[in-house]
Design a protein around this nucleic acid. Sequence first.
DNA 1: GACTCAATAT
DNA 2: CATATTGAGT
Length: 566
Amino acid sequence: MVCTENELLGWKDFPKGLKVLLLDKDCNSASEMRSRLEQMEYIVYVFCDENEALSAISSKSEVFHLAIVEVTAGNRDGGLKFLTSARDLPTIMVSGIHSISTMMKCIAHGAVEFLQKPLSDDKLRNIWQHVVHKAFNSGGKNVSESLKPVKESLLSMLELQPVKSEVKNEADNENSNGAEPLTSVVENQKELPPYCDKYPAPSTPQQKQGVRSVDDGDFQDHTILSTEQDSGVNEGDTKSVETTCCDSVAETTVLADSPGRLGEAITKEEHDFAADQKMEDHIATCSRSNDCTGNGSTRSADSSKASGLHSSSGTKANKKKMKVDWTPELHKKFVKAVEQLGIDQAIPSRILELMKVEGLTRHNVASHLQKFRMQRRQILPKEDEKRWPRPQPRDSVQRSYYPHKPVMAFPTYHSNHAPASGQFYPAWVPPGNYPNGARIWGSPYYPGWRPSETWHWTPHPGLCADVWGCPVTPPSFGSCPPYPQNASGLHKAVGIQNRYSILEKSLDLQPAEEVIDKVVKEAINKPWLPLPLGLKPPSTESVLDALSKQGISTVPPRITGSFRPH
DNA sequence: GACTCAATAT
DNA sequence: CATATTGAGT
């Protein structure tokens, strides 16, 4: 058995790598088909001889998930033997023959589909659906060996627990969702490969009515799993947040235990009207047609446009709006995204993109962003006011909430300065529902103090964010160093230099009178700093000179135009 | 359609 | 009361 369960458990890009047995006596057409299939990233095993194929199956030298058998006019019954011998294997017949009787014969013998040539790519691409179908619909116990792992894999993909087919109302609530397996499956099928919504489904038995595309994510799903693209974060991300439900059906999305994958169930489902008896006997695994007639609660938010596929049976499509729980992990992603984008590029859609959290909607993000900003607003001005006294005389009312300060592109040469000397914006510490009370978010006012593993200060130039993503002003910018500095000559010198920097930079930016004003004020308050009263900044040379006398030889490159042109 | 802000709901 | 969702305005 080459195909172990574990191997398949982490099946990425599901249909890819599906092993297809191709039986075709005609070597030419076989190789053509093979290359086409391989292009679709199926793994193809070609057999020209039926017996060989069969023995390959029985010998289990290789595990196949699907078979495609060519039926030619020459051997109309050729495939039948294969069909009957390889019942476990979902088999698709392919033929140029347009004969109903032949087709019927094949189907009757167990073929899952009879495709007529010429085969479109779409048809070919979608063959995987039969594997899924078979895996989930063979009555539970008859899933063939080769399909079992597929099923497991899919279940894990769907974040479902395997459905016990012989449920005897055992009280093990471990997986309470066993109650309603197929509904869930169907609902979750949006997570199936993209083919789902991009390509027409096969013509034959389709049970995937529930399939809908992920589309713009405007609908909410009940699971949000953190697609973890981050470097292996081990910081308890695996915590699955409660997915409690109002009353009855509490579907706790248990995480697939596949090692690398962690997810956060986030939302909660709400059944307004407990579908009382609905799940009573319903447990019957819904083997065939998913007649999972659910509660008829149709509460707006249909967004039925999402479904590119016919969702024939009723439109109920249980879409309850779920409440997103912004867990620390989720928030972290959010902040990371915001940080990456830069504070003023951070718009919901982009953030959403960067977060890569399934099920999360723009609305959610927008809302969170709103809170985020408001939080910032409360805090920013305080520390900010000191550095940027009254931004603009008047019209600042409807200004951007984020005063355009030069927060960008500050070189990091001030490492000799005290603790990064950033601004200390209080972090928005969410209600500490954190395990063992650990404040992994760090001290509210000193972001840098949070445990190292918790946060990576991305080297985004000049735009560091604390947990709430508050940008930190560039090091040693401004005149109020967070920590009192030793009045050493060195610092003095640096102070001078900084002040000049302020001037220059500000002038470069926009001749903000306030800034000048401020510098003047400072000059007055600190007479030991020789700032010319005429406000004429000393030449760079003289500054350099002064610095070098203080033993400072390396000076930052002059920064010009590195600020946003706002 | 997307963003922001305000109102409302939980 | 804090936080998330919904709604309205731009």
